[in-house]
Simulated assay, not measured.
Amino acid sequence: MNVEIITKEDLKEFKTEMLAEIKQLIKPEEGQAKQWLKSAEVRKLLNISPGTLQNLRINGTLRFTKIGGMMYYKLEDINRLLEGGNK
């Protein structure tokens, strides 16, 4: 039986690599618009308060993804909301 020991340093390295990959997925490509927006960006774009954004989340009008403590919103969902089709 082969046993492999994982050290704290191994876990720190794994964490660093994983965070770098997540940031790369969230970061827009050169010349492309962002696909995902943070709450503050959405509030500014829609000119709404934090409470209004929370209500949009709670009633299902605006879908979101929570990663860690941050909430992200798809730009296409926001555009759909602005166009009046919230499905």
Rank of each mutant, 00 (worst) to 15 (best):
E41W: 04
G85N: 15
Y73K: 03
K12Q: 11
E30P: 09
G60H: 01
E30R: 08
T65M: 09
L19E: 13
F14H: 15
V3C: 08
N79L: 10
R80W: 06
E41G: 02
G69V: 07
S39Y: 05
N79P: 06
L75F: 11
G31Q: 04
Q35N: 14
K44R: 09
P50E: 01
G51W: 09
E76W: 04
K74V: 03
V42F: 02
L56Y: 15
I67V: 11
E29W: 06
I6E: 10
T61G: 07
I78C: 01
T65D: 09
Q54F: 06
G85S: 13
N55M: 06
K27P: 02
G84K: 00
L53T: 01
E9H: 06
E17A: 07
L53H: 00
G31C: 03
Q24M: 06
T61P: 05
G69M: 06
G69L: 06
K44G: 12
K34A: 07
R57F: 08
L37N: 01
I67T: 10
T52Q: 15
K66T: 08
G85C: 10
K38F: 05
T52V: 09
P50R: 03
I6N: 12
L46D: 02
E29C: 07
K15T: 12
V42T: 02
I6R: 15
R43V: 06
Q35K: 13
G84V: 03
K12Y: 15
E83V: 06
T61F: 07
T65A: 12
N47E: 14
K74G: 04
E4M: 09
E9F: 06
G85P: 04
I78K: 05
I6Q: 11
T61A: 13
K87P: 07
L81T: 04
I48F: 03
A40G: 06
I5A: 07
Q24H: 14
E83W: 09
D10C: 00
G85R: 14
Y73A: 00
E41R: 03
G31D: 02
R43Q: 15
K15S: 13
A33C: 11
R80C: 11
L37R: 00
G60P: 00
Y73F: 07
L45V: 02
L11S: 11
S39I: 10
P28E: 10
K23H: 08
E83N: 14
L75D: 11
Q54V: 07
T52Y: 12
I78D: 00
L81F: 14
N55Q: 14
D77A: 01
T16K: 03
L53V: 01
L81N: 01
Q54W: 15
Y73P: 01
G68Y: 02
N86Q: 08
L75H: 10
I78Y: 00
G68W: 00
Y73D: 00
S49F: 02
S49M: 04
T65H: 14
I6K: 14
N2S: 13
T61E: 13
